[in-house]
Amino acid sequence: MERMQSCGVEPDEVTCVNMVAACLRSGDVETGLRIFNGMSVPSLASWNAMLSGYSQNGYHREAVMLFSEMQFRKARPDRTTFAIILSSCASMGLLEGGKQIHAALWKAELSMDLYVTSGLIAVYSKCSKIEVAKAIFNMAPKYDIVCWNSVLAESVAGARRFFNMMVCQDLVTWKEMIHGYAQNGRGEEAVDLFRDMIKASIEPDHIAFVAVLTACSHSGLLIDTGLKVFKSMQQEYDVEPLSDHYTCIVDTNEVKEIIEKMPYKDDPIVWEVLLSSCRVHGNVNLARRAADELFRLDSLPHIPSS
């Protein structure tokens, strides 16, 4: 931007917004703030870029202060503004701030907007106001994956209560609930829920299998349960295993036999992922095999593109 000015070209609003966003994405909050403060009348896009940068870099208190300044200067927030500031309030567990923003949402007629509903749920859940979060969740006109993730992100037991209350549980909500159990090391509950999903005639896809296999891996259930689930993918559900599924079973005794049948032997990404997983699980023999395969692929002649 300085070079532009030295050439006699003054940056416009679009330039400034892009510069602020670029600085904040790279973690240079100080420069981004300096550019922002140099704007006489920042546009809404500028405010949102600055708020987003603060939030993404963990400057949540600064984001809340900037939002207050935005209101003082009569700048009208939109759904993006509210979603960003609610995220910062949730990160700090700032209940009073969340309540104030909730009130502002009613005034702006955005309280039922799905984009901000998930943010409200996250704030109230983070502050242990589960009943309020549940009421907001129940009032949503529909549930999207962001809204469901906001519920899941706070304590798994509460998420399960939400899940059980849902009138219509689609594949997305089943997968997210299983994933929630997996991330919290509750493998048996994840497997039980996976089985309940099958009983409910919901066909699992490759993401559902990743979730349940991850749960098995994190909970020491791979040798029996995990391998059965893995083998059922093709045999019962016609789902072709991908690299993510193979990496979930790296620390099982049967992994060598499974890898031999893997259809992705000439895909370096598969071996790179397996090598990385071997480091985590300490599987030296498979790590050596993965490294050998990578050397083999690297030595193959490259066919020039036409």
Rank of each mutant, 00 (worst) to 15 (best):
residue 1 M to C: 11
residue 2 E to R: 07
residue 4 M to D: 02
residue 5 Q to C: 13
residue 6 S to Q: 13
residue 7 C to H: 12
residue 8 G to L: 02
residue 11 P to E: 00
residue 11 P to A: 03
residue 11 P to M: 02
residue 12 D to N: 12
residue 12 D to L: 03
residue 16 C to N: 10
residue 18 N to P: 10
residue 18 N to R: 11
residue 18 N to T: 06
residue 22 A to N: 04
residue 24 L to I: 10
residue 26 S to F: 04
residue 27 G to Q: 03
residue 33 L to G: 02
residue 37 N to Q: 12
residue 38 G to E: 06
residue 38 G to H: 02
residue 38 G to Y: 00
residue 39 M to N: 01
residue 48 N to A: 09
residue 51 L to S: 04
residue 52 S to G: 07
residue 55 S to T: 14
residue 56 Q to N: 10
residue 56 Q to Y: 03
residue 58 G to L: 05
residue 63 A to F: 02
residue 63 A to Q: 01
residue 63 A to V: 08
residue 65 M to F: 06
residue 66 L to P: 03
residue 67 F to D: 01
residue 69 E to F: 08
residue 71 Q to W: 01
residue 72 F to W: 07
residue 75 A to E: 12
residue 77 P to R: 00
residue 79 R to W: 00
residue 84 I to P: 08
residue 85 I to E: 02
residue 93 G to C: 04
residue 93 G to N: 02
residue 95 L to M: 12
residue 96 E to M: 15
residue 96 E to S: 15
residue 97 G to A: 05
residue 97 G to C: 07
residue 101 I to R: 03
residue 103 A to T: 15
residue 104 A to T: 09
residue 116 V to N: 02
residue 116 V to H: 01
residue 117 T to H: 00
residue 118 S to M: 07
residue 120 L to A: 03
residue 120 L to K: 00
residue 122 A to D: 15
residue 127 C to L: 02
residue 128 S to A: 13
residue 130 I to W: 15
residue 136 I to A: 04
residue 136 I to Q: 06
residue 138 N to I: 13
residue 139 M to V: 12
residue 141 P to G: 07
residue 147 C to I: 15
residue 153 A to I: 12
residue 166 M to K: 09
residue 169 Q to S: 14
residue 169 Q to Y: 00
residue 170 D to F: 06
residue 171 L to A: 15
residue 171 L to K: 13
residue 176 E to P: 10
residue 178 I to P: 11
residue 180 G to V: 14
residue 180 G to H: 01
residue 181 Y to T: 05
residue 183 Q to S: 09
residue 183 Q to P: 06
residue 185 G to W: 05
residue 189 E to Y: 09
residue 190 A to Y: 03
residue 194 F to V: 11
residue 198 I to D: 04
residue 204 P to Y: 03
residue 204 P to G: 05
residue 206 H to Q: 13
residue 209 F to Y: 04
residue 213 L to C: 06
residue 217 S to C: 14
residue 219 S to P: 11
residue 228 K to M: 08
residue 232 S to N: 04
residue 236 E to V: 11
residue 238 D to M: 03
residue 238 D to F: 09
residue 239 V to C: 07
residue 240 E to A: 14
residue 241 P to D: 08
residue 246 Y to F: 08
residue 247 T to L: 06
residue 249 I to C: 10
residue 256 K to E: 15
residue 257 E to C: 10
residue 260 E to R: 07
residue 264 Y to A: 08
residue 267 D to P: 05
residue 282 G to C: 07
residue 285 N to K: 12
residue 288 R to D: 13
residue 289 R to E: 13
residue 292 D to V: 05
residue 292 D to Q: 13
residue 293 E to L: 08
residue 297 L to T: 09
residue 298 D to I: 07
residue 299 S to K: 15
residue 302 H to C: 11
residue 304 P to H: 09
residue 304 P to N: 07
residue 305 S to Q: 12
residue 305 S to A: 14
residue 306 S to K: 08
